[in-house]
């Protein structure tokens, strides 16, 4: 057995293809991104090395809405954590305590999670359409004509309007994670609580939530990272417009690179996004641990 499991040729055949491709497609590109971010480069010919100039432009010059894009992603982050997660938690707690139709509800809530973001974005574009959209039609039919609006075209409403499809798509995911965690809490604990007189809301607040805290923390980290690197939905809905009202760092990165050929500058945004994700994750993990 030892001889078979130590077969170097088999080990190489099993691991090397993956490792070589992993290096070429993931490891090397990430290092290259870091290197490109130090260049002034339009993608044609050689770039010139400019050190941290791109980062300085990014953080201090702020001519292209980078500051705005970071603020927007933070707003989405706060909305996700403080609006989306509480809704998901409430649904998870209700479902996990056993209710008629539990499986049906869970199954339906999860449908948007598995759909393509492109489909969801296009569908919401139609819902938000100023002239023929479902939302304005519904407002009109209940006599709220004055509330009608060009939801994604109005700079004061666009970001909030873009958040609603995010809420629609991902609440089911967080709900499912917390639900699965709450379901794994042993029945005896609830039994003991009931003998002590804790039922319904008390038992959810005092028993279930503390016990599923690790999963709530995972959900918070997911929601935070998801908001910081959000791309698909914003790209489909508004491409960051109008006037940067829904701009997020990743749409700005995409436009810098592929519309304006600022390869160096765009790469510095990419590195910024990764750094931001790592820093937020570390801070949150530390905060959760020290509690």
């Amino acid at each position: 057995m030892d001889k078979v499991l130590g077969d170097r040729r088999a080990i190489a055949l099993f691991v090397l293809p993956t490792l070589i491709l992993f290096a070429a497609i993931i490891a090397v590109p990430i290092l290259l991104s870091g290197y490109y971010s130090l260049l002034d480069w339009d993608g044609i010919g050689e770039g010139t090395f400019v050190g941290l100039q791109n980062y300085a432009n990014l953080l201090f010059q702020n001519t292209d809405g980078f500051g705005k894009s970071v603020v927007n992603s933070i707003i989405l982050l706060l909305l996700s954590v403080f609006v989306q997660l509480p809704i998901a938690l409430a649904l998870a707690l209700i479902l996990a305590r056993g209710i008629k139709g539990e499986v049906l509800y869970r199954t339906v809530y999860f449908i948007p999670v598995i759909m393509s973001t492109v489909v969801i974005g296009q569908l919401w574009l139609k819902i938000y359409n100023a002239d023929y959209g479902l939302l304005n039609a519904m407002l009109g039919s209940i006599g709220l004509d004055s509330w009608k609006s060009d939801w994604l075209g109005d700079t004061s409403k666009a970001l909030l309007a873009a958040f609603v499809p995010i809420l629609w798509q991902y609440t089911g995911y967080h709900m499912l994670l917390m639900y699965a965690s709450a379901k794994s809490v042993s029945e005896e604990i609830y039994e003991a609580a009931r003998i002590d007189g804790a039922t319904g809301i008390t038992s959810a607040l005092k028993i279930t939530i503390p016990l599923i805290k690790p999963m709530i923390e995972v959900c918070i980290i997911f929601a935070v990272i998801g908001s910081l690197k959000i791309f698909d939905l914003i790209y489909v809905l508004t491409r960051g417009g109008p006037l940067h009202a829904t701009e997020v760092p990743s749409t700005l990165m995409y436009k810098s690179i592929f519309d304006q050929y600022q390869y160096g500058y765009g790469s510095s945004i990419a590195i910024f996004i990764i750094a931001e994700c790592i820093i937020f994750t570390l801070i949150l993990q530390r905060a959760f641990k020290s509690e």
């Binding site: 990430i30 990743s250 996004i273 990764i274």
Partner: peptide
């Protein structure tokens, strides 16, 4: 842990 963004441009060039 790697976001796809991080590899987008280098991957495009490769």
């Amino acid at each position: 842990m790697v976001p796809q963004h991080a590899a987008l441009l280098p991957l495009f060039i490769i």
